[in-house]
């Protein structure tokens, strides 16, 4: 699959998806004063009667969404990833426990968020939501895949959390290829028999770069866009574990509890496939450009390549 050159931030895809979903009158959008950032603002502009402004009050927003879901609506609520965490217990007790289908989107996830600094860089959101029974957890890698996966939530029976990114990253899909995406199914972007890189979000393009670099050194890598962390595509992981010497996970998220942990939890049962995790070690971010921060945190394509090489020796 070739990567088109145009870029797009996954949050833009979320905004476009809401517009596509607008034809269903059950769809409602909830905002907590960050609609311009999460991109729900486009829906608000066209459908103000179905957009609820809750002000800077995330806990209330989560339960308002839950009440609406109990009354036949399909709520899409968004704020920064980090601020969804203020309503974490509300998601746990007020949404997931009664099984109400609310779709929560946290934008500006990861250190890639950049200069806002560590207060805005959620590196634990995926871990948190993964622990909630029945939650679907996604982290798409570009605008087109975020749009496609968000649109698919319309017919999804579980509550969900989707992390989007603030900044543009290279597109991994085009209008046609993104149609093959499916919630819960990893997307193989590149095939190689030596090592498999399983990544999500902004790290998918880094993983593709790492694979190209490795190829020049004679190592062939499979690259998977594991846009859905939960439910995890364990079938695909087993297949990769069977054909490759090892697995490398790559995420702009703490190595504690995120994609790497999810994969580790699974492979611990299948004979202990060698695994390396590229992610933010147990530390906070800081202000800086996305590139500077990724270098400082050790989550560039070079770091992925080093991990892959270590599995080959």
């Amino acid at each position: 699959m070739s990567a088109p050159s145009k870029g797009g931030a996954s949050r833009d895809g979320y905004g476009s998806a809401l517009l596509r979903l607008s034809s269903d009158s059950r769809v409602v959008v909830l905002e907590a004063d960050l609609g311009k950032s999460t991109k729900s603002c486009h829906f608000r502009e066209l459908y103000p009667e179905r957009t609820i402004s809750l002000g800077i009050a995330e806990q209330n927003m989560v339960l308002v969404a839950s009440g609406m879901a109990s009354s036949g609506k399909i709520p899409f609520a968004s704020t920064f990833a980090i601020f969804t965490e203020r309503g974490f217990e509300q998601v746990r007790n007020g949404v997931a426990r009664p099984g109400l289908v609310v779709h929560l989107c946290g934008s500006h996830g990861g250190v890639h968020t950049g200069t806002d600094g560590s207060s805005a860089q959620s590196i634990e959101d995926l871990a948190l939501y993964r622990t909630i029974p029945g939650m679907t957890v996604m982290h798409p890698c570009d605008d087109l895949s975020a749009e496609e996966l968000t649109v698919q939530l319309l017919n999804h029976d579980n509550p969900s959390y989707t992390r989007t990114a603030r900044n543009k990253t290279p597109r991994m899909y085009d209008q046609e290829t993104c149609k093959s995406l499916k919630i819960g199914k990893g997307s193989v972007l590149r095939e190689g028999g030596d090592v498999a890189i399983i990544s999500c979000g902004v790290m998918v393009s880094e993983s593709m770069k790492a694979a190209e670099y490795l190829s020049s050194k004679g190592i062939e890598a499979t690259v998977v866009d594991m846009h859905t962390l939960k439910p995890l595509d364990t079938e695909l992981i087993d297949e990769l574990a069977g054909k490759c010497k090892g697995l490398v996970t790559a995420e702009d998220h703490s190595v504690i509890g995120g994609l790497g942990s999810a994969v580790a939890e699974h492979v611990s049962y299948n004979g202990g496939t060698p695994l390396r995790m590229v992610g933010v070690s147990d530390r906070f971010g800081e202000s800086g450009t996305p590139q500077e921060l990724m270098e400082a945190m050790g989550i560039t394509y070079g770091d992925i390549a080093i991990s892959c090489e270590s599995l080959m020796s």
Partner: peptide, 10 residues
């Protein structure tokens, strides 16, 4: 909050 959501939906 939940009741408010129910009322808005109604």
């Amino acid at each position: 909050s939940f009741g408010l959501g129910c009322a808005l939906a109604a």
